[in-house]
């Protein structure tokens, strides 16, 4: 087994004891974005800094990806494809982040429910590394 590598450098802190999504914050107007970028779409300044985002948020909306995505670009397992949840998680005071969800059960998903950041393996790359992505799961205590 190879090592665990992030799906993209700079998307989240990795490796880390307590990995976080890396967004950016505008030094002029405070707007928060994900992933981090230069330039602020809210006030048009180019003065931004990196910001590690919160780990808990609420489910703003969701769907379930019911059919296998085209590959490329999709890199996940298509041979044993199982539907997966996708949603936007509103991180309070920061930004709404789009992510895979750890459940694809429509009855387990409710707009407004608390969600926690998770990291999980998505596929194994050509070098045998386990590629890690971020996702959100329903919080244990609702």
């Amino acid at each position: 087994m190879g090592t665990q590598v992030p799906i993209q450098e700079g998307l989240f802190t990795w490796p880390s004891e307590d990995p976080r999504l890396i967004g950016s914050e505008c030094n002029q107007c405070g707007a928060v974005l994900f992933p981090a970028q230069s330039g602020c779409p809210k006030c048009a300044s180019d003065d931004t800094k990196h910001r590690e985002l919160g780990k808990r948020g609420s489910l703003w909306t969701w769907t379930i990806q019911g059919f296998p995505p085209k590959a490329p670009p999709y890199a996940g397992d298509l041979e044993n494809f199982e539907p997966f949840g996708v949603g936007y998680i509103e991180l309070p005071g920061e930004v709404k982040v789009e992510a895979r969800l750890t459940t694809a059960d429509k009855d387990a998903l409710k707009i407004g429910m608390e969600m926690d950041l998770q990291f999980l393996p998505l596929y194994v790359d050509d070098d045998g590394n386990e590629v890690i992505t971020f996702a959100f799961s329903p919080a244990q205590e609702q």
Partner: peptide, 12 residues
């Protein structure tokens, strides 16, 4: 968008 977005299954 970054390549990760499509790899992750979000580019639909």
């Amino acid at each position: 968008l970054g390549d990760w977005y499509g790899k992750n299954g979000l580019a639909l």
